[in-house]
Design a binder for these strands. Sequence first.
DNA 1: CCAATAAATGAACGCGAGTCAATAAATGAC
DNA 2: GTCATTTATTGACTCGCGTTCATTTATTGG
Lengths: 218, 218
Amino acid sequence: MGITERRIREKERKRSTMLDAAESILIEKGLDHLSMEYVAEIAEVSKGSLYQYFQNKNDLVLGICYRATQLLNNSFKEVLESNRNGLMLVRELGERYLNYVKDHPQYYSSMKFLDNLHSSGVGGESDYLELCTKNRQEGFRLMVEAIQRGIDDGSIKNDFPAEQLALLFWSTSHGVVTISYMHQNYEHFKLLERIGMQENELFNAYMHILGCGIAADT
Amino acid sequence: MGITERRIREKERKRSTMLDAAESILIEKGLDHLSMEYVAEIAEVSKGSLYQYFQNKNDLVLGICYRATQLLNNSFKEVLESNRNGLMLVRELGERYLNYVKDHPQYYSSMKFLDNLHSSGVGGESDYLELCTKNRQEGFRLMVEAIQRGIDDGSIKNDFPAEQLALLFWSTSHGVVTISYMHQNYEHFKLLERIGMQENELFNAYMHILGCGIAADT
DNA sequence: CCAATAAATGAACGCGAGTCAATAAATGAC
DNA sequence: GTCATTTATTGACTCGCGTTCATTTATTGG
């Protein structure tokens, strides 16, 4: 009975096409101009068809967000395959995060979208929501792992449990990366210019400060 | 000619009433349920009237955001009136920021709204936008001042210029505060619980790490 | 009391998300 | 090949909401 399997594959392929369309709009026009009508037009299907593949607009955007989290996690996993010390891994994770935002601003914007969703108690109306959340947790887990390795190999102080340091690293780097994102994508955001700072300077300063806080005394 | 002045006062009073209505909705129902219709109903005016006082919905929300930035800045200014050393001031600023988000989540959400605006190149269609931006800059300036004082009084290392440290402090604390906000306002955000961490622990850890990075060696 | 000006109103418009009854296509049994 | 049945596709429709505007109402200055 290969027919149902083929059907499922077909369906996945179509879903993927639709996501491609949505993604291209996201890149070219931004989230504000991503309408179901427009996606349907680009994907060359009817609006109604979209709703056979996505439960609603949120679900579609989270479909992109799912790709986004996958890509970021894969990048993180690569880092952890290295056998450098934990502190270096942490630094590398930060760098990857920064480059990710630079290379895929549309993916990052979809992740911001995910963050903003949780407010209105949006729950069971998107299958992708759960997948995205899972991926987020996985990403966090990778950070924990890097830090734990650092604690184990003695490159990172053990003042705090690895999870707590990871949360700190996650939240603060998120803040720094957000600045970087704004700098690159918001025309009127001139803070870096105003204080005469380069993006990489910001990142290096961040890593320096963070390093002072978490690096073990050698 | 006191009549035009009275008129202007009246107009300001009415605008304020409308903002009050919008704010109460924001508190009780959140940004998602803040519609012009609803605001009109609560403020007991017609929908059309709102547009005599606000250029559009964004403008109205930014009106709230203006109040939000005012309040935060006032809190910051209080801190700077103290004559403790700069490092203590910085810590106090962070604490104020955290408490602000705890006490006025609706104001914080309006500031997130401001952040999300800059994307779609929304420019001259809101008078409040400029005011909010001004206030933001003022808030940042206060941070710079605290740090500069710290550098001057020797409590903060002078590895970096005050502006750069301020940007670092601003962005990283923003990240930490965001976690705190999510923890309090997003029902499904369980990260802190999952790693068994309290909010104040997060803050203290943040300040500890930051302190290691910026505090002068004594 | 009467223009003239300003403020307030709500019906009407446009846009976009989501629905659904009708239509078309694919499948499997005979 | 034919036909009943299940599955996929369509676009007209509803509905909510931001925004506009012609009309009505209130206020001012003469």
